[in-house]
Simulated assay, not measured.
Amino acid sequence: MAMVMWIGALLLGCGVVMSALSAVYRDQLSNSRADTEVGRTLEPRHGGMRFLGIGRNGPALLLIVVGAIILLFGALA
């Protein structure tokens, strides 16, 4: 039973890391040409909450959900 819990924890951890990496590496943070209105900034022009979208984080969310289910069933058994 302990091995099943480890597998669930590993899946959950991998899902969290995949989600974080997709947010970090989603787009280039700096622009080589400076905007005259805004000035130089590390923020992307069209930032927002798109990095939290299901399309980009689908596999990570699936790993998190499967890992959590395995951990839950392992704890209840």
Rank of each mutant, 00 (worst) to 15 (best):
M1F: 00
M3I: 09
M3L: 14
V4M: 14
V4F: 14
V4T: 07
M5D: 11
W6F: 08
W6G: 02
W6P: 01
W6T: 06
I7N: 14
G8S: 07
A9C: 09
L10H: 08
L11I: 01
L11Q: 04
L11Y: 01
L11K: 03
L11V: 02
L12Y: 12
L12T: 12
L12N: 14
G13P: 05
G13C: 03
G13S: 09
G13T: 06
C14Y: 10
C14M: 13
C14A: 13
G15Q: 02
V16K: 06
V16M: 14
V16D: 04
V17M: 14
V17N: 08
M18V: 08
M18I: 08
M18P: 04
A20F: 10
A20I: 11
A20M: 12
L21S: 14
L21C: 15
S22C: 01
S22R: 12
A23Q: 15
A23G: 09
V24I: 15
Y25N: 09
Y25K: 09
R26G: 09
R26W: 02
D27Q: 13
D27V: 14
D27N: 11
Q28S: 15
L29P: 01
S30L: 02
N31S: 11
N31T: 09
N31V: 04
N31H: 10
S32I: 05
S32M: 04
R33C: 03
A34Y: 00
A34K: 08
A34Q: 06
A34H: 04
A34R: 11
D35F: 00
E37V: 03
E37M: 00
E37H: 05
V38G: 00
V38A: 02
G39K: 07
G39P: 01
G39V: 01
G39M: 02
R40Q: 12
R40T: 08
R40F: 11
T41F: 06
T41H: 09
L42K: 09
E43R: 15
E43D: 15
P44M: 05
R45P: 14
R45M: 12
R45C: 06
R45Y: 10
H46M: 06
G47P: 03
G47I: 02
G47Q: 05
M49L: 13
R50S: 13
F51I: 07
L52D: 04
L52V: 11
G53I: 01
G53P: 00
I54L: 09
I54Y: 06
I54R: 04
G55K: 04
G55N: 04
R56P: 00
N57F: 01
G58A: 12
P59V: 06
P59L: 08
P59F: 07
A60W: 05
A60M: 08
L61I: 13
L61V: 13
L61N: 15
L62G: 10
I64F: 01
I64L: 02
I64Y: 01
V65E: 06
V65T: 10
G67A: 15
A68P: 01
A68V: 07
A68T: 11
I69F: 10
I69W: 07
I69E: 06
I70Q: 05
L71W: 04
L71M: 15
L72Y: 12
L72C: 13
L72G: 09
F73G: 15
F73P: 06
F73Y: 12
F73M: 14
G74F: 07
G74E: 10
A75F: 04
A75N: 05
A75R: 06
A75M: 04
L76Y: 03
L76D: 03
L76P: 00
L76N: 02
A77C: 02
